[in-house]
């Protein structure tokens, strides 16, 4: 089947792409749009490394086919900083040492960002719930939870 033309809003800009219908959003971002901040982990929706925000909701980009993003608003980790300034959430991750190897970080940031977009003052339990679909195998979760909590204040 020929490629399909897909239009959507990516990090605040309208984009039009041509993609085969069985391509995932993750592949599109990384392979066609060179947005490699979104990480490719398990590709079966278990690790959360590929988390992006679609219409204000955190989703695994490996579980979304490109045609499904038609007409939606997608935010990736590259869309967090504004005018060269890191988002307050990113600054809080740095300040609270919530990064070690960094592989889970983009996904963690996007799950946290989606939480704060919908709930600006989350409880610790709500933070834990929001990142429960994101695996970190080195930093440990305590600093990450702290970073999200302090960014929400």
């Amino acid at each position: 089947m020929p490629e399909l033309k897909i239009c959507f809003n990516l990090n605040g800009r309208e984009v039009t792409v041509m993609a085969p219908p069985d391509m995932t959003l993750l592949e599109l971002l990384r392979e066609k749009l060179d947005l490699t901040g979104t990480k490719k982990g398990c590709e079966i929706g278990e690790c959360g490394a590929c988390t992006v925000i679609i219409n204000k909701k955190a989703v695994n980009s490996c579980m979304v086919l490109v045609p499904q993003v038609e007409g939606t608003e997608v935010i990736t980790v590259e869309g967090l900083s504004q005018n060269g300034e890191l988002d307050s959430l990113q600054q809080s991750f740095i300040k609270n040492h919530a990064i070690q190897c960094g592989f889970c970080t983009p996904g963690m940031l996007m799950s946290a960002k989606a939480l704060l977009m919908n709930n600006p003052n989350p409880t610790k339990e709500e933070i834990k719930e929001a990142i429960s679909g994101n695996l970190c195998r080195c930093t440990g979760y305590i600093q990450i939870i702290k970073a999200i909590a302090s960014a929400s204040k």
Partner: peptide, 26 residues
């Protein structure tokens, strides 16, 4: 295709090779 959380996993594993997909998500 509805949410895709099962279908896409099965497609990736090669267990399902659809010739046609009807995407209900819209």
């Amino acid at each position: 295709l509805a949410g895709g959380t099962d279908l896409l996993v099965n497609m990736r594993k090669g267990q399902i090779k659809p010739e046609g997909i009807v995407d209900l998500s819209k």
